[in-house]
């Protein structure tokens, strides 16, 4: 079991099913994809149809044979290219490099590709394709900047056929029953501080309040850790002593940064333990899902 630091008691508990679209954000290397996968597991467990969408191509996703679970990717650059193709540039574009054209357009209108991704997600949300859509957002700052600036979003599509799309995307972003944003971080100084910074910008400029805070790679709590000083019967060079001391330092530091994040977010952090394995297996996902479920259910 992960640490269960006492982090206040009146904080709102995350409800995975309070919105149809859950956008999972976090810097690269924080384990966004793992969290998305674990949440998908919790969704299918209740019989819901869950669609996980990766915002970057080539995302390694531990899929399993489950008719309730689907996985696809929407990489912004690719989405823009297909959009251009679908809108009359298909036949004409063959002679020109479509990627070249797409990069001119996305530089002229920053955010257009991300807007198109959100439009696709909105389309899915309005259809009956899935009961829960989990979007594993691109790690780039672009995407967050886009959802943080509704005005910028409206400007992107001030004219042309994108105007309707952008209005509808804005409506979805504005409605917490339709879309929620979950943060993933690891409990270390730089990632936590950067997450807090991003969260503040998001709140300030768009009014979007994050619905969940996941702390990934949490070390296990060893009950005897506090008694490490009493291990005088062991040599201080003993591996047991060294390991206990190391774990205590790391674990205390994690608790400190977890508390810092929890306070700034005003949310009860949901801990995802670090599994000491080369690669997560389906069993590991089930294990993590059980642990997350316990935390979501508690103190409701």
């Amino acid at each position: 079991m992960p640490n269960s630091a006492n982090l206040g008691h009146k904080k709102k508990v995350f409800d995975l099913f309070a919105q149809k679209v859950l956008v999972v954000v976090g810097k690269g290397g924080t384990g966004r994809t793992t969290v998305a996968r674990v949440l998908a597991e919790l969704g299918t467990k209740t019989g819901r149809r869950v669609a996980v969408i990766a915002g970057t191509s080539g995302t390694h996703f531990l899929a399993k044979e489950d008719p309730l679970l689907s996985f696809s990717s929407l990489e912004p650059g690719q989405v823009l290219i297909s959009y251009l193709y679908e809108h009359g540039l298909g036949q004409l574009g063959k002679r020109l490099s479509s990627t070249g054209l797409a990069s001119i357009i996305s530089t002229a209108i920053p955010g257009i590709a991300d807007l198109l991704v959100l439009a696709k997600i909105k389309q899915m949300e309005r259809s009956d394709a899935a009961d829960l859509i989990i979007f594993d957002a691109p790690a780039s700052g672009h995407f967050l900047r886009l959802i943080a600036t509704p005005k910028g979003l409206a400007d992107i599509a001030a004219a042309g056929p994108l105007r309707k799309q952008s209005r509808e995307v804005l409506e979805m972003l504005d409605d917490p029953t339709r879309l929620g944003v979950a943060f993933v971080t690891i409990a270390e100084e730089t990632p936590v501080k950067e997450s807090i910074e991003t969260m503040k910008q998001l709140k300030k400029s768009s009014g979007i309040v994050p619905c969940a805070l996941f702390i990934n790679s949490v070390l296990p709590s060893i009950p005897g850790n506090e008694k490490v000083q009493d291990l005088s019967f062991l040599e201080s060079t003993s591996p047991y002593y060294q390991a206990a001391k190391y774990m205590r330092t790391r674990s205390q530091s994690q608790k400190h940064y977890e508390a810092m994040a929890a306070k700034a977010f005003g949310l009860k952090p949901i801990e995802v333990p670090l599994v000491p394995t080369v690669e997560l297996s389906e069993d590991d996902i089930t294990y993590l899902a059980d642990i997350v479920e316990l935390q979501i259910r508690s103190k409701k």
Binding site: Y83, L84, H87, G88, L89, L92, G93, L96, L101, I105, A108, I109, I112, A158, A159, G160, P161, L162
Partner: peptide, 12 residues
């Protein structure tokens, strides 16, 4: 092509 681009993403 130019006309199509204008139509799809704006003349700007």
């Amino acid at each position: 092509l130019l006309r199509t681009i204008s139509k799809v993403v704006g003349t700007q």
